[in-house]
Design a protein around this nucleic acid. Structure first.
Lengths: 147, 147
DNA sequence: CGACATTACTTTCAAAAAGATAGTATCACT
DNA sequence: AGTGATACTATCTTTTTGAAAGTAATGTCG
């Protein structure tokens, strides 16, 4: 897909997808949230070809979701840490996971618990204003053309 | 990416991404939520090549997110409607959009209002159990290996 | 001191997927 | 009979992906 003019797209979904709309990027972000930081950790976890990992990490870094930090001077070695924007990806990961659990949940699955209560987290999207679950109230879309 | 054995993957995120982890599929689902149903509507809205649109619609239909319905017998014409699983994609779309609005929100953007109150929807992900925003409480991951 | 290991890549090339363009099939309408 | 709408398919070129091997800088062990 051509991503050049995705930034003129008035849809916020298309804007997000412009650079992270592929499986590897999302999986890298997932691993980063779990705590992986290094090239070889991502490579082994994902079974991804190093060429592609390099490209994805570069894009994710350029787009401000990851940042490189030197963790050793001799030899020079860098690791990839989540930025604030990258950390804000967590709700998306949870919603993607919630769908997968509901509709593709056969067999054994990883589970995510609230560390304090030990109860499995059940992620839902709500409107912070009304408190209602997304999808339970009618929505109106407003295009910016008329402004 | 190789999606063959993604179903043995214990990560629910990977399971979701196995078949909808590309930009076109998510954008098709977005358009379907807006109300588009026909091949040419999707094609014009997305500017997608017909070869690829065919493939994506087929996959989405096979995976149970869309279903075909005959809307004309002569000539035989089918349209694509969201299934329950497809409709359950909406929270994901809203979270993807929320991130884009926050971090790639320059210029004009489409907005989504609560149809009754007219107030812009602010989607957040929360744990239905604790009511806490996702990311504000520590999380514990449990792998299914020990079962 | 030299051989091997570690980490983070890059190079090369074959295979798969995407994308552009044109064409086809089935009708309705005039 | 000719034109148009709709939903594709066929063909071909370009781009991306993926596999495999190689490289560079340095640490470690005997």
């Amino acid at each position: 897909m051509n991503n050049e003019n995705r930034y003129e797209n008035p849809c916020p979904i298309a804007r997000s997808l412009a650079f992270m709309g592929d499986t590897w990027s999302i999986l890298i972000l997932r691993d980063a949230h779990i705590g992986l930081t290094r090239f070889d950790q991502f490579r082994k976890s994902l079974g991804i070809a190093p060429t592609i990992l390099t490209r994805r990490l570069t894009t994710l870094t350029e787009e401000g979701l990851l940042e490189k930090r030197l963790y050793s001077e001799h030899p020079p070695r860098e690791e990839y840490l989540l930025t604030a924007a990258g950390r804000d990806f967590l709700p998306m990961l949870f919603m993607i996971g919630a769908w997968g659990r509901k509709y593709r949940g056969e067999g054994k699955l990883v589970r995510f618990l609230d560390a304090e209560t030990g109860i499995e987290i059940q992620p839902i999207a709500v409107d912070e204003v009304t408190g209602a679950k997304i999808g339970t109230r009618p929505i109106r879309m407003v295009t910016p053309d008329g402004d």
